[in-house]
């Protein structure tokens, strides 16, 4: 059972990674905690669901959903963050503003879904299981692991090796200096939000498909876990978020398997406290990123 549970944890953790990357990306660039990220994730699942039941092929539904959630994230930036950013000292007002946007999106989803739990129609994705070295793994789990690995690699490449990535890191380090060097910070913000939204949307679709459940509150538990992930991984650290996501997924599976399941959250948040005590900036965090000292 141990290896099966580790596999389960890695699959769950890989989707947490997809979700958390966008959250940490926005924090890394803007030093803002976007609490509407969970609602964007939920919106991704909803959009793909309604596209699918209205006859759009599933792959196209995923693409449309990622595009739509990317645009939703841009709208969130324009409506909830941009004006606050212009005034400076936006961290706390932006947090409140993002909670407001989250509530609006959740309320819309509740009305649209009539408070019902939705699920993709049976057969949306082939249900096939393989027994490999005593492990039971589904085709969907294999696809999810593969898709997440490709996307995470692509994102890291994009951030580290492309002009856009250099602009993102420049703005994250010092927006004013980056602007003096000709970087359009607004464009960087919009692109960052688009990527974060698209990743969250895809995570929503994958979770909705993997666990057969789409509902208006589905973003909340993931939002909490993403918060744990980015704190443990180091606020703003992409690599830290990925490793912390996988660790969280596996820890969660093992606590459910070997300890009373009611203790899962207590253990996860206990782990969070422990990490904060030993390494206040997270496992891979930069002290300046946490203190916001690089924002000028």
């Amino acid at each position: 059972m141990l290896t099966q549970q580790i596999l389960n944890g890695l699959v769950s953790g890989s989707v947490y990674a997809l979700f958390s990357l966008g959250f940490t990306l926005i924090f890394g660039v803007q030093k803002l905690l976007n609490f509407a990220h969970g609602a964007t994730f939920m919106a991704g699942a909803f959009i793909a669901y309604y596209c699918t039941i209205n006859g759009l092929p599933f792959v196209m539904a995923i693409g449309f959903s990622m595009l739509a959630t990317g645009l939703i994230a841009i709208l969130i930036d324009l409506i909830a963050f941009r004006a606050l950013r212009k005034r400076g000292n936006a961290e706390f007002p932006a947090l409140v503003s993002s909670i407001g946007v989250d509530l609006i999106l959740v309320s819309i989803a509740q009305q649209v879904s009539n408070t019902q739990v939705l699920n993709f129609p049976f057969g949306t994705f082939p249900i096939q299981f393989y027994d490999v070295f005593g492990l039971r793994i589904s085709l969907l789990q294999i696809v999810i692991l593969g898709v997440v690995a490709v996307l995470v690699t692509a994102l890291i490449f994009y951030l580290k090796k492309t002009t856009f990535g250099r602009q993102v890191r420049a703005v994250a380090t010092n927006e004013r200096a980056a602007a003096l060097l000709g970087v359009n910070a607004q464009s960087v913000y919009l692109q960052t939000f688009f990527i974060a939204g698209a990743l969250a949307g895809l995570a929503g679709v994958l979770i909705g498909l993997l666990f057969n459940s789409i509902q208006f509150l589905m973003g909340e538990p993931y939002m909490l876990r993403a918060f744990v992930v980015v704190v443990i991984g180091g606020l703003g650290s992409v690599q830290g978020a990925i490793i912390a996501s996988l660790m969280l997924g596996v820890a969660q599976s093992l606590t459910v398997a070997y300890l009373p399941s009611g203790l899962t959250d207590a253990i996860i948040f206990g782990l969070l406290f422990l990490v904060l005590l030993v390494r206040p900036n997270g496992l891979f965090g930069d002290i300046n990123a946490v203190a916001g000292g690089t924002r000028q």
Binding site: Q4, N8, G9, V11, S253
Partner: peptide
Amino acid sequence: SVDGVALADSDFSALATKIAT
């Protein structure tokens, strides 16, 4: 065994594996 899940949970893979085995 006695296990509890939260109303908003949807990932029961670990719990399902534990019980199935």
